[in-house]
Design a protein around this nucleic acid. Sequence first.
RNA 1: GGUCCUUUGGCCGAGUGGCUAGGCAAAGCUCUGCAAAAGCUUCUACAGCGGUUCGAGUCCGCUAGGGACCUCCA
Length: 496
Amino acid sequence: MPLSIYNSYSRTKELFKPITEGHVGMYVCGPTVSGESHLGHARPYISFDVVYRYLSHLGYKVRYVRNITDAGHFEEEGREAEDKVSKKALLEKLEPMELVQKYTNLFHWAMKQFNCIEPSIEPTATGHIVEQINMIEGIIAAGYAYEVNGSVYFDVKKYAASHDYGKLSGRVIDDLLETTRELDGQEEKRDRADFALWKAAPPEHIMRWKSPWGEGFPGWHIECSAMATKYLGARFDIHGGGMDLQFPHHESEIAQSTICNHQPPVNYWMHNNMITINGRKMGKSYNNVIKLTELFSGNHPLLTQAYHPMTIRFFILQSHYRSTLDFSNEALQASEKALKRLWDSYENLKKLDLPADQAADDQELNGRIEKLLAELESFMDDDFSTPKVIANLFDMAPVINSIKDGLIPANAISGQTLANLKSSFTLYLEDIFGLQSPYQSDNSLLQGVMQLLIDIRKESRAKKDFATSDKIRNQLSALGILIKDEKDGNMSWSLS
RNA sequence: GGUCCUUUGGCCGAGUGGCUAGGCAAAGCUCUGCAAAAGCUUCUACAGCGGUUCGAGUCCGCUAGGGACCUCCA
C-alpha cells in the first residue's frame, strides 16, 4: 500500500513519490536556541521523528536535516532592529555563543529524553553565513531584491507578479500589499510585504558579519533556504515544521529558493498543528508555556505531577499531528496509564511462546488478530495516522493478557500469528513510534534487593504469614514500588 | 478588519455518507487470603437550525461558541 501525505501546499493528500527513487530528502525547521524548549516545541520534533522512522522502515534512505537557529532574528520593522540572541546575552552577561551552546545542549538533552533520532545533518545558521550571502547575491542578480542602507529586502510585489506568493499560507497577495499604505513613510522597504534577506547591524549589535552590503546579519528566512539547498538540493521531498511557520517563514522560503534555484524547493509541505493549553496556543507571547525541564520534574504551577518523557511522546502520538492537542493534567495522566497498560501487555507478549508450526485453534480470533495487524501499515500510510495504530494495538492487548493469564489457551492463535504479533509490537512501539519503557530505568542493585524482598514475601505467604507479606508490599508501595501477585504465584514489581 | 480552521459521550481523542474507534474515569462481575493488576460486561456521543440523500457526526447553507495566522513563534 502506497504512502500518502497531506501536502499543505495543495491542501490534499497526495501519493508520496520521492524525487530520487529509494531516497528521501527531508528538512524540518529546528529550534531557535535563545531559550529553553517547551511542550509545544516537542510536537514537531516527535512527529517528524516518527515520519523519519517510518520512511526508514519503508526502506527509504532518508537524509534528515534539522537546523539550529543560533543567529537570532531581528524584531519586525517599526521597532528597533535587535538580535534576540544577543539581546538576551547582554542581559545575562554571557557570550552569545555561550548562551547558544547552553540551550543547544539542553535541546539535545531533551531530544534524547524523547528518544528522537538525531538528524543526519544539524546545520547552524552561524555556520552558513557564506551560503546565505551567496544566495542573497543570487536573488539580487535576478532582480528580486534591493539594497537600502546596508540592508537587503526581497521584492515580494515583483515576485508575486509572476509567481504564486501566498499559496502555501492561503494568503491573498493584494491584501498583503494593501496594508502597505497604512504604514508610515520611514520604512526602508518599498512594500510592507517585503521581507529582509540581510539586515545592517547597528553598532551595539554583537553578532555581525561582513557582507557586500556592510556589516550585518542574515534575515530569518534565508538560513533555511540556504541550508536546505546546500544539503538537499534545489528541490527536495519533504519540508516540515509547525503550522505557525507557514506564514511568513515558509512562504518566504519558497519565494527565495524559487528565484535563486529557478524551481519550487519542496514537493511535500508538512505542518504539525499546535499544542494548546486551555484551548489556547502554547506560546511565549501568551505566557502559558511549560518548559520541558518543568514537565519532566513537575515543577510548574500548572502541573500536578512530573511526567515521563515517554508519557509525553505517547500523548502526542495519540492524536493526529494535524489536529490541535490540548494539554491538561487529566489528559497526560490518562496517557500515562494507557502507555503503561500497553507496555505491560507488550512485556507479557514477549514472554509468550509457541512452536512455529502451531496451528490456530480459534480461527475467528486468529483471523481478527491478523486483520488488526495488517491494518497497521495502512494506517501509517494514510498520512501517519498514529492514533489508529495505537487503537489497534489496544484492541490486541486484552488478547495478549488473557493468553498470558491462561484465560485464553495459547494455541488459540497460531505460532505464525504470535510471531507476527511480537514483531509488529516491537516494530511499531519501539522502532516506529520510538517508545521505550515508561518505567524508571532499573539498576542492578535494586533488582537484587527486590528479588530478595520478593523471595521473603513468597516464603511468608507460603506460611500464611500475611502480616509480613502485607508489610513488605505496603511499605514498598509507600516508597513507590508496586508488587503484583501473578496468577502462577510469581510476583512482579514496578516503580509507580 | 482579512484569511482559514474547529465544535464528538464525565474527560482526552479517532473518524474516508451506511456496521462498536481507542484511551482515561465510573459501575457491576470474575480472579484473589486481602489488595493491585488483569479479564468480562455496562455507559452509543456527535454545538443549534435548515437542506441534499434511500441513508449524514461525515456533504451544503445559516446561526452560535472556540481557535490559529495576518508581528517573533513549533
